[in-house]
Amino acid sequence: MLSTASVAARAPCGIGASRRQQRGAAARGRRQFCLVRAAKGDVLLEIHDLQAKVAATGKQILKGVTLTVREGEVHAIMGKNGSGKSTLSKVLVGHPDYEVTGGSAAYKGVDLFELEPEQRSHMGLFLSFQSPVEIPGVSNIDFLRIATNARRKAAGEKELDPLEFYAHVMPKLEALNMDPAFLNRNVNEGFSGGEKKRNEILQLACLEADMAILDEIDSGLDIDALRDVSKAVNGLKSQQQDMGILMVTHYKRLLDYIRPDYVHIMQEGRIVTTGDMGLVDKLEESGYSVLSSSA
């Protein structure tokens, strides 16, 4: 599984021209490798023609999204507000506000929509929420420990007692430049935007996910926080090279820190273009209108 491509993916920055060509080749060959082991790694997440609507209003948001993420790949989704990026990420983890109306999504070969949200988490699927809720009265460390133990239990590993967990979480906290006082505060209660995002990534680190969906982890972050959060994600990725990442973002600056292998542009509930960082540069120059003219 450690092909040259995935080794290259370890380096967070500096995608060389040769690598980009490799990517392009892999992208072209993606379809035919769907069912066999690809050079890059196993298919982690395969979304096919996914359609979904808002349960309460019936408004159709996703109108046929097709996307495949393999182990070790980093994908980025960009697109205008309201194009369905966040909906896609929430649908994948089973948010009750949305109803799947068509298509399929398989994670590690299992139909995602057959699984409860907690089962998806046990299998290593993780969503970093765009705006995580505050839960007054639940301390962060209890929450992290219960969540970590739920995952460990599902994986047949030994659960950690409070002391063991403390030892488990401290290095992760340091990697994120987080004050240990965080642990004793209530989950997200009174956290600043940056603190909430750090806390999401801390959860990602504790849960040791195999597939991370990061929904706008750059929104509301100052420059230092963005660097810390990106560094932590890259650090996790280097420890666990098979981890697949799907990032939703509006801005290139995040992608400068966490280099994507593929960039997808979403429009009106579909992925309309797929490319690499070159596509991002083009967008930065002339906005999303360039797509409609070229499409």
Binding site: P96, E118, I135, G137, F143, A150
Partner: peptide
């Protein structure tokens, strides 16, 4: 709160435990 329940579930915490946590936390504040 649906949103809080879902947040806990999305972190692998079972629905029952999540409900318990939220009920206790409601008072714990």
């Amino acid at each position: 709160e649906e949103e809080e329940l879902f947040y806990l579930k999305s972190r692998g915490i079972s629905a029952d435990v999540a409900r318990q946590m939220l009920v206790y936390s409601f008072g714990r504040e």
